[in-house]
């Protein structure tokens, strides 16, 4: 495991924001750390970087205890927390040069990073004049400067346009191909589901789900999608026949799938009672809906 925490907890005053969290991030994975805003993601990340002192529990990174191996571990981590931390009075390149000085990295690496995040042309411009996307890219260049084995990104696509989001996604996939590990937080599943190999879903400081992206799809229950001319009547009718209706929308109903036989019976029932059925079929919930279910229903 690249990151392993046990019973990790943290409180601001008497408000507990992280509750007994046990993260398991395997080497070479892209681990999507998901949860709504305020779920405790940034707090957890700050504990992983030794910025916040852990209340209870332990953190092991690269199989070493964090507090007693702080510098050795931090040498192999690159991070971007919340908004990128950039000196606005310095140019993009100077921001990187300053960090390179602290990390004892050669200037060539600075130029390479500028090229990687496509800021070579804007390298001489004051970072304060950068657009949000450029700042975010500079932040990523800063995080990658020491060629880290573990990259920790907190909401890296915040404020980026679709192109920027795709660029960052491709960058992460490229990094993982080099044998590195990426730990990326987001409040949107859709943003990480296309590239994450592992997912941890956190809400109110508690881990709601952790596993591979395949595990997440497996707990996904199929549903029967029914489109009729009168959803309310159709729903009442099905309920009267002891069928559970999981969702009623203006134009469709969702009923938990049990068998193909059940679909034909429901169809017959609706038609016999004068309800016009436009469509009826078996569906998997998309992951986004699943994510919402996990983070809203299981508090």
């Amino acid at each position: 495991m690249v990151i392993q925490t046990n019973g990790l907890s943290f409180s601001f005053g008497d408000q507990q924001v992280v509750k007994s969290l046990s993260l398991e991030v395997p080497a070479g994975s892209i681990y999507g750390f998901l949860g709504p805003n305020g779920a405790g993601k940034t707090t957890t990340i700050k504990m992983l970087l030794n910025l916040l002192k852990t209340g209870e529990g332990s953190i092991h990174i690269f199989d070493k205890e964090l507090n007693s191996n702080r510098i050795g571990i931090l040498k192999q981590i690159g991070s971007l927390i919340e908004q990128p931390a950039i000196y606005h009075h310095l140019t993009g390149k100077e921001n990187l040069m300053n960090r390179a000085m602290l990390l004892q990295v050669k200037e060539q690496r600075v130029d390479d990073m500028l090229k990687l995040v496509q800021l070579t042309a804007a390298a001489g411009k004051k970072a304060g004049q950068y657009s949000l996307g450029m700042k975010q890219r500079l932040g990523i260049a800063l995080a990658l400067l020491n060629d880290p084995k573990l990259l920790i990104l907190d909401e890296p696509t915040n404020g980026l346009d679709p192109n920027g989001i795709i660029e960052i996604r491709e960058l992460m996939l490229r990094i993982v191909k080099e044998g590195k590990t990426v730990f990326v937080s987001s409040h949107l599943l859709s943003e990480v589901e296309k590239m994450a190999t592992h997912v941890g879903i956190i809400n109110h400081g508690k881990m709601m789900f952790q596993g591979t992206i395949g595990d997440l799809q497996n707990i996904n229950q199929p549903q029967v999608y029914i489109e009729t001319d009168n959803t309310v009547d159709a729903a009442n009718l099905l309920k009267r026949h002891n069928l559970e209706v999981s969702e009623i929308a203006n134009d469709h109903l969702l009923i938990p799938f049990t068998s193909k036989q059940q679909i034909s019976e429901m169809n017959a029932l609706l038609v016999q009672n004068g309800i016009t059925v436009f469509g009826i079929n078996k569906q998997h919930k998309d992951l986004e809906r699943l994510f919402l279910d996990i983070t809203t229903n299981r508090n």
């Binding site: 700050k46 970087l49 030794n50 910025l51 510098i71 050795g72 931090l74 040498k75 981590i77 991070s79 927390i81 919340e82 908004q83 931390a85 950039i86 000196y87 606005h88 960090r99 602290l102 990390l103 800063l142 020491n146």
Partner: peptide
């Protein structure tokens, strides 16, 4: 203030420096 203004305390203290 250089660090407060740029919100860089967090990066400064997550570098491999004591």
């Amino acid at each position: 203030n250089v660090e407060h203004k740029a919100d860089t305390w967090k990066t400064l203290f997550s570098l491999p420096l004591s």
